[in-house]
Lab assay of single mutants.
Amino acid sequence: TEEVEKIVRELQKRGVSQEEIQRILKRNGIDPRDVEHVVRRLR
């Protein structure tokens, strides 16, 4: 989703690792598959 993408991009800008990003998003109830998808697209 748009929202997830924004969050991921923001965290990446701050130098947060992929694993940490995924952990944060999972904690916020976001589907890990969505996270994977977004992270892969932004690489």
Rank of each mutant, 00 (worst) to 15 (best):
T1S: 09
T1D: 08
T1W: 14
T1E: 10
T1I: 14
T1G: 06
T1Y: 14
T1F: 13
T1M: 14
T1L: 15
E2K: 12
E2I: 10
E2R: 09
E2V: 09
E2W: 09
E2H: 11
E2F: 10
E2T: 06
E2P: 09
E2A: 11
E2N: 09
E3K: 10
E3M: 11
E3I: 10
E3W: 13
E3D: 11
E3F: 12
E3Y: 13
E3N: 10
E3Q: 11
E3T: 09
E3G: 06
E3A: 10
V4C: 11
V4N: 01
V4F: 05
V4D: 00
V4R: 01
V4T: 04
V4G: 01
V4A: 05
V4Y: 04
V4S: 02
E5F: 13
E5W: 14
E5S: 05
E5V: 09
E5P: 01
E5Q: 04
K6F: 06
K6G: 05
K6T: 06
K6H: 08
K6P: 02
K6Q: 09
K6D: 06
K6A: 08
K6R: 12
K6V: 06
I7A: 10
I7C: 04
I7H: 05
I7L: 12
I7S: 03
I7V: 06
I7W: 10
I7M: 13
I7G: 01
V8K: 01
V8W: 09
V8D: 00
V8N: 00
V8Q: 01
R9H: 04
R9Q: 06
R9I: 08
R9G: 04
R9Y: 05
R9D: 04
R9P: 00
R9T: 05
R9W: 05
E10F: 11
E10R: 08
E10W: 10
E10K: 10
E10P: 01
E10S: 08
E10C: 09
E10D: 10
E10L: 12
E10Q: 09
E10A: 11
E10M: 11
E10T: 09
E10I: 10
E10H: 09
L11F: 06
L11W: 04
L11N: 00
L11Y: 05
L11Q: 01
L11A: 04
L11I: 02
L11C: 15
L11H: 01
L11G: 00
L11D: 00
Q12W: 15
Q12S: 12
Q12L: 15
Q12R: 10
Q12N: 09
Q12T: 13
Q12P: 00
Q12M: 15
Q12H: 14
K13V: 07
K13C: 03
K13L: 10
K13M: 08
K13Y: 07
K13F: 07
K13S: 10
K13T: 09
K13E: 08
K13Q: 11
R14N: 09
R14M: 11
R14H: 10
R14D: 06
R14S: 09
R14G: 08
R14W: 12
R14I: 11
R14T: 07
G15C: 04
G15R: 03
G15P: 02
G15I: 02
G15V: 02
G15F: 03
G15H: 06
G15W: 04
G15L: 05
V16R: 07
V16M: 12
V16Q: 04
V16T: 07
V16S: 05
V16D: 02
V16N: 06
V16L: 12
V16C: 01
V16E: 07
V16I: 11
V16K: 10
V16G: 02
S17K: 08
S17Q: 07
S17I: 05
S17A: 07
S17F: 03
S17L: 07
S17T: 11
S17V: 06
S17C: 00
S17Y: 02
S17P: 08
S17E: 07
Q18R: 12
Q18E: 13
Q18A: 13
Q18I: 15
Q18M: 15
Q18D: 14
Q18Y: 15
Q18K: 12
Q18S: 12
E19T: 10
E19H: 11
E19Y: 12
E19R: 12
E19W: 11
E19M: 11
E19N: 08
E19I: 09
E20V: 08
E20W: 11
E20T: 08
E20M: 07
E20P: 00
E20I: 06
E20R: 08
E20H: 06
E20L: 09
E20A: 10
E20G: 07
I21Y: 03
I21D: 00
I21L: 08
I21Q: 01
I21S: 00
I21F: 07
I21G: 00
Q22S: 10
Q22G: 11
Q22C: 05
Q22A: 14
Q22E: 13
Q22I: 15
Q22H: 09
Q22P: 05
Q22R: 13
R23Q: 13
R23M: 12
R23A: 12
R23N: 13
R23H: 12
R23F: 08
R23S: 10
R23Y: 10
R23K: 09
R23G: 08
R23E: 13
R23D: 11
I24H: 06
I24E: 09
I24N: 01
I24C: 04
I24Y: 06
I24Q: 07
L25A: 04
L25S: 00
L25P: 00
L25T: 02
L25D: 00
L25H: 00
L25I: 02
L25F: 03
L25R: 00
L25K: 00
K26F: 14
K26Q: 13
K26M: 14
K26A: 13
K26V: 15
R27W: 07
R27E: 14
R27Y: 09
R27F: 11
R27N: 12
R27D: 13
R27L: 13
R27P: 02
R27Q: 13
R27G: 09
R27I: 10
N28P: 05
N28H: 14
N28V: 13
N28W: 13
N28M: 14
N28D: 10
N28T: 12
N28L: 14
N28R: 12
G29L: 04
G29M: 03
G29S: 03
G29Y: 02
G29N: 05
G29R: 02
G29A: 02
G29D: 04
G29Q: 02
G29I: 02
G29E: 03
I30P: 01
I30Y: 15
I30H: 12
I30T: 04
I30M: 07
I30S: 03
I30G: 01
D31S: 06
D31E: 04
D31F: 01
D31M: 02
D31K: 03
D31L: 02
D31R: 04
D31A: 04
D31Y: 01
D31H: 06
D31P: 07
D31W: 01
P32S: 05
P32V: 04
P32H: 04
P32W: 08
P32A: 05
P32R: 02
P32Y: 04
P32G: 04
P32K: 03
P32N: 03
P32T: 04
R33C: 08
R33T: 06
R33A: 12
R33I: 11
D34W: 14
D34S: 05
D34M: 14
D34E: 13
D34F: 13
D34N: 04
D34K: 09
D34R: 06
D34H: 10
V35H: 02
V35I: 14
V35D: 07
V35M: 04
V35R: 01
E36A: 09
E36Q: 05
E36V: 04
E36H: 04
E36R: 05
E36Y: 05
E36T: 03
E36D: 07
E36S: 03
H37D: 15
H37N: 13
H37T: 14
H37Y: 08
H37A: 15
H37Q: 14
H37L: 13
H37R: 14
H37G: 08
H37V: 12
V38A: 07
V38G: 01
V38L: 10
V38P: 00
V38S: 02
V38F: 03
V38I: 14
V38Y: 03
V38T: 03
V38K: 01
V38E: 01
V39P: 01
V39D: 01
V39H: 02
V39I: 15
V39T: 05
V39R: 05
R40M: 05
R40C: 03
R40T: 11
R40G: 12
R40D: 15
R40K: 10
R40I: 13
R40H: 13
R40L: 07
R40A: 11
R40N: 14
R40E: 15
R40W: 03
R41I: 13
R41N: 13
R41W: 05
R41K: 15
R41T: 11
R41Y: 11
R41L: 14
R41C: 12
R41E: 14
R41M: 15
L42A: 04
L42T: 03
L42E: 03
L42M: 04
L42W: 02
L42I: 10
L42H: 06
L42F: 04
L42R: 03
L42N: 04
L42C: 03
R43T: 13
R43L: 15
R43W: 15
R43E: 15
R43N: 15
R43S: 14
R43K: 12
R43V: 14
